[in-house]
Simulated scan of single mutants.
Amino acid sequence: MKPLIAWKPFDPKLNAASTRLRVLLPCQYLQEAGWNCEIYKPEKADEYDLVIFQKTCTKEDITLAKNLRKKKIKVVYDLCDNNFYNPYDLRKYSQKAAGSKSMIERANAVTVSTPELQKLIAHPQCIVIDDTIDYVQRNWLKEIPYKLKKWQEKWQDKSFRVVWFGNSKLEIVYKSLGLSEAPSGMASITKVTPALEELNKRIPVKLTVISNSEELFQEHTQNLSFPTKYYPWQMSTFPLLFFQNDVCIIPIALNPFTICKTNNRLVTSLSLGLPVVADKIPSYEEFKDFVLFGDWEKNLYRYATNKKLRDRHVKEGKEYIKNNYTKKRVVEQWSKMFKTVLKLK
């Protein structure tokens, strides 16, 4: 009889990106590969052989994990962020760190998204499992008017179009507490705006931001000498808005939180056909042959004046992603963990 495996996601509505990448897509691929797995159902708790807690670490989850262990049901805690970095000693994040530590203590194994995060976990069975690549489905029919608009604007307007995208939730929380420096968020754009200002003196620049806070956008882009545009992030419109640009920028404030991040944004950019200039973190290193790192003024100018280089990096990057980040890789990584924890042959 096949073991029954369940994921218990931190987001019950299943809308969060990490839930999609570390619960929904892996579960789908593993079902297709023959594993008996599903989203956790409380009424079936006693039937499971293994329960994976994805990020969630509430008091109820800690109690549940303890009770599952008493019933000889295996528990895995899955983590994709450094929950232990709390530079301002904020109560909310201290509680989250304590919750994560409690879940780690009760787990048979811990899965993490990057080797850097693995270094922080004090558990004898800590396993790195990559984020699943979310290949955004492009609707070619819907893209026709956007492509026509892009070609028309390119013919009339020679601007170099730069885009930043990302979730600013952490920065929003910090700002609500009167703190100006969040570990990550839209504020990272300000690292690049001086280079964009310099580039704009030589080549017209336009900046687009796709995120979840127009207020932060206004704050971080005010008084710039070149045009800027904000769009709220929506899964349905993101690809259409994103591909109208020439390059994606991923500036990063390097700290213990961000160095543990995955390659998700970089991979998304290349997969959707845009070259990337980024600050380097460990998970980006494998893409060094088709991404430009740091030296913002120089590298933005390189891409702005060399379309062949942009096209080559996108082509090579897409090929690398296609060959390495496959469904097979997802299934193999999770399957290996299942077999290890359940002691299956």
Rank of each mutant, 00 (worst) to 15 (best):
K322V: 02
S184E: 14
F165M: 11
E332P: 01
N255L: 10
N323Q: 13
M235K: 10
I144T: 10
I73M: 04
K154Q: 11
L25R: 15
L207T: 11
E215M: 13
I129G: 01
W7H: 13
T132G: 10
N139Q: 09
A97G: 00
G317L: 07
G99K: 00
H220L: 04
E153Y: 02
D89I: 00
F287R: 02
K288Q: 15
L50K: 08
P275R: 07
V314L: 04
V76Y: 00
P145R: 07
T111A: 08
K158G: 11
I104W: 00
F226Y: 15
T114G: 01
F217H: 05
A16P: 02
D289E: 11
F160V: 07
N82P: 03
D78I: 01
L224P: 03
K154E: 11
Y29V: 08
D49A: 12
K322Q: 11
G34I: 07
N67V: 05
W35Y: 15
V75R: 03
L30I: 11
R265K: 14
T208I: 09
K41I: 12
N323P: 00
Y301V: 05
P145Y: 08
T111P: 00
Q222A: 13
Q28R: 15
E38I: 13
C248V: 09
L120V: 03
K339H: 05
T63W: 09
I203A: 05
V341Y: 02
E332A: 14
K142V: 03
